[in-house]
Amino acid sequence: MDTVTYPETIVSEIVDRFSIPLQCNNQEEEARPLVARYHHVWTPDLRILDTDGSELYRWNGYLPPEEFAARALCGFAHARLRMLQYAQAEEEYSEVLRRFPTSYAAPEALYFLGVAQYRRDPQGNDLRKEWHKLQGRYPSSEWRLKQSFIEQ
């Protein structure tokens, strides 16, 4: 990650725009409290934290630059959603779909774009509209399956 993914501007721009980055070497003695607090078991292990230290999103495993950028942006959008910042979540999910439409994170972004729109305006029809797009654009994704009850 330090040699391939993190040096790329497409990654650092997103990381710096939304977060204060913190690295923890899991081999160091002084890392033990953080390892225990966040139940860390395997690297790479990324967490998005609120300012009180509570975890809002996580993912494991190496990702190349474009996939990392898409996943991080999707994660920051989800953090916004969980903080009830619906309009900002919509903006960031939309950015995932505009910039990284073929990424592994894109189906999740489309699923939760509908959720953010619904939470902002429960009277609107945006949830079904976005989920209908999910059926067409990402038919084999897990996120399509997660909304498949409306296809019955």
């Binding site: 939304f18 204060i20 923890c24 070497n25 966040y38 990324l46 967490r47 998005i48 934290l49």
Partner: peptide
């Protein structure tokens, strides 16, 4: 270039001041 912080409390304080989140990356240098 990402400027990684090393201490959680420092990162949380800075995130609060800048209205950002903290991105925590556990890594193994080996």
């Amino acid at each position: 270039m990402i400027h990684w912080r090393k201490h959680l409390e420092e990162a949380l304080d800075e995130a609060g001041q800048q209205r950002k989140f903290v991105l925590l990356d556990f890594f193994n240098p080996g």
